Amino acid sequence: MAKDGGLDWDGLLKWSLANSDGTQQARQLSDEDRRWFMEAMQAQTVDVVRRMKEISLVMSTPDDVLQSQGVTPDDIYNMLDELHEHVESIDMANDLHSVGGLVPLLGYLRSPHANLRAKAADVVSTIVQNNPKSQQLVMEANGLDPLLTNFNSDSSIASRTKALGAISSLIQHNKPGINAFRLANGYASLKDALSSDDVRFQRKALNLIKYLLHENSADCSIVTELGIPRQMVHLASSADSDVREAALGGLLELAKDKKSGTLADEEKLKSVLQSRIDGISEMSEDQLEAAREERQLVDSLWKECYNEPSSLREKGLVVLPGEETFKQPPDVAGKFFEPALRAWSTPKQDGRNVSESAGEKKDTPPPLLLGPGPSDGSSA
């Protein structure tokens, strides 16, 4: 069945087609056929847990030993990429610690190779996203510390961005993680990130700020003291639409906190919002559809700051026609009843149905919707 030591896929396909053409009942397999089929499938079945154990063993091996065996950084990257696929399953993500792979993975956050640091952070982000168990395991393994280090001072912007993404996944819906981030002066790091020229880095920082302010409005005072609102106002006019939306969302969270009291008095904010209103007013239909969230954020922020709706609402640009209209599902069954219903609703002449004037002797009773209509002058 094999060719050059590999699996004969052509033979397997022909065998499958011959035994399941859909025209006959499945025949009983012989012991030989059953054994061959199981061997063929098992040869291609990956035991994920076993493979994760192997990867964990490699990650635990000292770099000098790996180098002596000819293992290159590219090999390690490909291995981490494979691990990334495995841990997309939440069960496999939680199993990584039990097979001894979580701590070695966190060790790669300190790799001398920037692409390995970035890839390790990417894998960590997937492991902890919406996963309280793995969030706790990473926190207990002090995984937040190297992520913060890379976020703050990595020489690679890609590594900094991936570290920030992993931090966001780690601390969301995780109060101990949020507290640790705040104690580590995380807001000052986010302020620094907003000064970057990398829009992806800016966007991730803005989204995390918005989330943190939404979860705890008391942090609005910290953000205000650091001067972050001024940066957010500037980024609200960014050329990148995602950055604009994230900045507007963060400003809206600040505006909802009446104690901050700084946004409504800033002429710069009003100027930026008016500029966005003017830009939105000149958009094409397709552009307006793509800017749906921005339109609503601009209007909500204007109303929150100045206690009046924006001119977008007057122009009908906050909610476009059809955006809030409930669309009925297609009428699948109606076509089966339409002829009988239409005949019943046809106008009568002199108290009779139109069909009676064509020779029928009595009114046709209303049709039964759950069965065939009665025939003229006869019983079922």
Rank of each mutant, 00 (worst) to 15 (best):
Y211Q: 03
S284P: 05
L12A: 06
Y77G: 05
T262P: 04
S169V: 01
R200S: 09
Y77F: 15
L7F: 09
S169R: 12
G373N: 05
K259P: 03
M92C: 07
C305Y: 04
W36E: 01
G11C: 07
K258F: 12
W302K: 00
R117F: 03
A380E: 09
G359D: 04
E140D: 12
A205V: 10
T45F: 12
E293G: 06
K259E: 06
L7Q: 11
T346N: 08
L206M: 12
G165L: 10
A114R: 05
I90Q: 09
S153P: 04
L164F: 10
L213T: 09
S284V: 11
D4F: 15
G165V: 11
V124Q: 01
F336L: 10
V123D: 00
P365G: 03
P146C: 02
E289G: 02
I55E: 01
G316H: 09
R27K: 10
E323T: 14
E308N: 09
L164W: 03
M79Y: 13
I178G: 02
S168M: 06
N353F: 13
Y187A: 01
Y77M: 03
I209Y: 09
Q136P: 02
G5R: 13
N174S: 07
V332E: 03
E54T: 13
S196L: 03
L29F: 14
